[in-house]
Design a protein around this nucleic acid. Structure first.
Lengths: 341, 341
DNA sequence: CCGGTTACAGTAACCGGTTACATTATTACA
DNA sequence: TGTAATAATGTAACCGGTTACTGTAACCGG
């Protein structure tokens, strides 16, 4: 064993196969003709030496990393499983790698994002993982990006894929009003700066307005898309003397769980006294004690679509500026309906 | 704009700061002293130019990728959210990147694994994502690996982290027998080649044996850790004339859900006629209509520990050959207990 | 005042691929 | 038969960092 335990390189293969490195490279990438006999020789030597091209060297030379990044704000929600799964499949099908990272632009202004032009060919950005300034900078350098659950600022032509939030929200609140006669409907706001929450709130307001119900800001509480936070907020709301209410539209299913628990603690019967509905139709929503009336969000499809758009960008094809995936409300029992299943 | 829209390199920084590239490199890596004034100049220029070192170039020179791989069999289970989350945190804390990939050794023998020595400094391998032969090969080349939910073959000294399956399984079956007087207990087997399932079955058998209950293979059905599969299998079991049973130990919580639904369809009251228990204590298990008696698996901790072991390996410190995380049974109501919460 | 450290900085080789350009042999065609 | 086009291959520069080696000046103890 020599002093360098160095790995086998393309030059080793070239020497053994008695050809030049260029030829080996061409054989590997099949981007120029190589005579059959030579191909055979190279192939044999590669197998013998167990040669695998060094990714970094390749990246350096081609300026392609063959990997794409996924930038999340957190990995706490079950929500991310389908997203990741959908994206990973597309990425793998295209023979690329997936770099998963978390980053909260608001918390780490001093550090650069863990994935970016330096280590990926493009990144899929979830919601507000990145601030506008960073998006703009990457946009200027033509770095491929796809936004999910976020609309780019109007001056940035970045493809985004998200779901139909407003119409579905409106529809589910319509349901509360029209079918169940609710008129004092609470809303548990999602995360600040999180667009989904914003649109859901707009849908909520639109429904109220359409039915001539005044908007009462006292019926809005914090939820942050988090079961615990919502539970705390809802409990606090109930503890103090609070305005009347007869329904809750939670900004997501996780939040709805917190609402239900708080109501349960306060001995308020659901759905008899208060209807509760959510958003997302998460994995668990149909198997709850009180199956949740909610909106089905095609999260896996969001991941898949984001991947498809990304590869369109990478192949120089025009990507769809906007992919808006349809949602549909699913009526179960937490609103007061009694679909026997 | 010149023909090359080339990115800014360390040489650009060096030129602007009027120092050599070596000095810039040393400043960036802080691996050799740099005078304060020069440091200041470099720092300023780097910020101005918005310079980020090119990862591939660095990899090539240092032969370190600063990224570690996670090799999964699938991303379908909610189970993976905590695993991923725990691992990602450690990886990020150590300033590395996380490459997530799926691979089924049994399905893709011809293709090499998507993560390996060519693009990572080490990989965390879940269960049977990789075959023994591949493990052995990487082991021979000293490639750092950590196994999760899998024991390495005895001749491979690869650290692994997993959870205590057998004792907890035995304890939960003991509970069914001792507290609820069950004696005809079914088991829904998890995935073939999946070690967890194997150990859980051993715990199950051990409990039976300790209580003098004969093992009846007719009480074992397929579950594959999957709600749907288990539902189908359990339904099929119930449809044909089947041996008596009074309890089911499902190999995981997802599977338990399938069991409960099948029993429900057949109008068999749970937990009155049949006790059902699971394993994992997933996110949803406590909020089910019938809160699940199960075993708490510290999955996030598994991810964290796997990461810690990996970085021990990378830093040349000795890693713990085995990390066995404790589990505990959590008694809720699906077994027949009636903990009012 | 002198030999030996030490702190700081620069030059250039090197990591392992890709590829522009050059070269040679072969085939096609007027 | 001469010439152009084409196929197959080789040479060497280049991608953007790191670092071994070298040099200089300041500092230190005797």
């Amino acid at each position: 064993m020599t002093r360098k335990s160095h790995s086998i390189t393309i030059r080793d293969v070239a020497r053994q196969a008695d050809v030049s490195v260029a030829t080996v490279s061409r054989y590997i990438n099949r981007n120029a003709p190589v005579s059959p006999e030579v191909a055979e020789r190279i192939s044999k030597v590669m197998a013998e030496l167990n040669y695998v091209p060094h990714a970094a060297a390749r990246h350096l030379a081609t300026r392609k990393t063959r990997s794409i990044g996924l930038l999340l704000t957190t990995i706490n929600y079950d929500f991310f499983t389908p997203l990741l799964s959908g994206l990973e499949r597309v990425v793998a099908e295209n023979n690329h790698n997936l770099l998963v990272a978390t980053y909260r632009a608001d918390l780490r202004k001093d550090y650069p994002p863990p994935v970016g032009p330096h280590n990926t060919d493009g990144v899929v950005v979830f919601a507000d993982a990145l601030q506008e300034e960073q998006l703009a900078q990457w946009y200027r350098m033509n770095f491929p990006m796809v936004l999910v659950h976020r609309t780019p600022p109007p001056y940035l032509n970045v493809p985004y894929v998200t779901i139909e939030n407003k119409a579905a929200s409106r529809k589910i609140v319509d349901h509360l009003i029209e079918v169940h006669g609710r008129r004092r409907i609470m809303f548990t706001r999602g995360l600040e700066n999180h667009e989904d929450s914003h649109w859901r709130e707009l849908g909520y307001k639109a429904s109220l307005e359409a039915h001539g119900i005044p908007y009462d800001p006292r019926l809005i509480i914090r939820g942050e898309f988090d079961r615990e936070v919502t539970y705390q907020e809802m409990s606090a709301f109930l503890a103090n003397n609070h305005p009347d209410f007869d329904a809750v539209f939670a900004s997501d299913d996780d939040s709805a769980l917190g609402v239900i628990r708080a109501l349960h603690d306060a001995d308020i019967p659901v759905p008899e006294a208060v209807s509760v509905v959510g958003f997302d139709d998460q994995h668990f929503s149909c198997i709850l004690p009180l199956p949740l009336t909610t909106v089905r969000a095609p999260t896996e499809e969001v991941g898949r679509m984001a991947g498809l758009q990304m590869f369109k960008l990478l192949q120089g094809e025009p990507a769809d500026p906007m992919t808006l995936l349809p949602t549909e409300i699913v009526i179960r029992q937490s609103c007061g309906c009694n679909e026997s299943q």
